[in-house]
Design a protein around this nucleic acid. Structure first.
Lengths: 138, 138
DNA sequence: AATTGTAGTGCAACGGAAGTGCATTTATTG
DNA sequence: CAATAAATGCACTTCCGTTGCACTACAATT
C-alpha cells in the first residue's frame, strides 16, 4: 500500500484513495485493462473519474496506453524505469482472439524499421494477434 | 472503368454503380480511407451502404482494414495478388501526426517475431507514427 | 482553527462511430 | 413476366470517449 502511494507521489500524482485502488487493481491484473473493466470492478466509481485518472496516470508515466485493435483503449502499468516515450522502450503487445485479453510482452521490443526517405517515426505500435499461452494450453 | 468491374467480379463482388464509385474513390486516393471520408465524398450515399460495402470488400479481399490507432477504422485497396490473410503479406502502415493521414508502406513487411512458448500469432499489425514525407518536406 | 484556493470527484449530457432490423428497391434467373 | 435473391436506404441502438459544470475534499496560508 505504502509502495503504491510512494510510486504515485514519485510520478507527481497525488495518491488519493480512488487512485490507489485503481493502481492496485491494475497491478493485480496481468492483462491490459479497459476503462470498462475498472468500471465493472468498482461499481460505485464514476466513469469520468476513472477516465481522468487514467489520463493523469498516462501523462505522468504511470501507465501506457495500448491500442490492441479492438477499438477499445486499454492501459497497463509502466514498469519501474519504463520510459514509454523513448522509441527503444516500445515493447509489443499480444491480443488473444480467443479470450480477448491483451498482454504486454515487455521483453520483446519492436524491431527497428528503415523507413523511406522523408518519413520520421516518433512512435510505433505493434500488436500480434492469435492465441495466447493460456488458451493454447487448453 | 471496365477494369474495376472486372476486378470486383473476379473477387466475387457484384459490381454495382455504388461499389464501382467507392472502388474508384479509393483507387484515386493514396491514403487509407475512413467510412466518413467516403460519406463526405458522396453526400447522397447512405452510411449503411458504405459500411456494408466496405465489409463486403474486406471479406472478399478487395480491401484490407487498417487500425492506425486513431480509433477510426480505415481501409485501403489490396494490391493485385495481395493475400492479406497470409502473415508474410502483412505490410506496415504509417500514420502522420501532422496531416493525420495513414498510408500503406506495402514494400515494408512486418519483421518476424519470436514469440514466447505457447503463443501462436495469426495476425499482426504494425503502425509507425510520426511525420510523413509530404509534411516533412514543408 | 478559519479561510481561501486548487485538485479531485460525480452527474449529466454530447458526439462520433460501429452496428442491426426491417422495409424497399434493384438486379438475376428460371 | 414472375419469383427470388441481393443491394440499398431509413431509423434506431449501443458503446465508448469526452466535456461542462457543480460540488467536495484536501492543502496551504494567515
Amino acid at each position: 500500500m505504502k509502495e503504491i502511494e510512494q510510486r504515485l507521489t514519485e510520478n507527481g500524482v497525488r495518491p488519493t484513495a480512488m487512485r490507489i485502488l485503481i493502481y492496485k487493481y491494475m497491478a493485480e491484473s496481468e492483462v491490459a485493462i479497459a476503462l470498462t473493466d475498472i468500471e465493472n470492478a468498482f461499481a460505485k466509481a464514476d466513469r469520468t473519474t476513472l477516465f481522468r485518472t487514467l489520463k493523469t496516470f498516462e501523462q505522468k508515466g504511470v501507465v501506457h496506453q495500448i491500442d490492441d485493435g479492438t477499438g477499445v483503449q486499454k492501459y497497463a502499468l509502466c514498469e519501474t524505469g519504463c520510459n514509454c516515450e523513448l522509441e527503444q522502450d516500445l515493447h509489443l503487445h499480444f491480443h488473444c482472439n480467443n479470450c480477448n485479453e491483451t498482454v504486454c510482452l515487455t521483453e520483446h521490443k519492436i524491431p527497428n524499421i528503415n523507413l523511406p526517405e522523408g518519413y520520421v517515426a516518433e512512435d510505433a505500435n505493434l500488436v500480434l494477434k492469435g492465441i495466447c499461452e493460456k488458451c493454447s494450453a487448453q
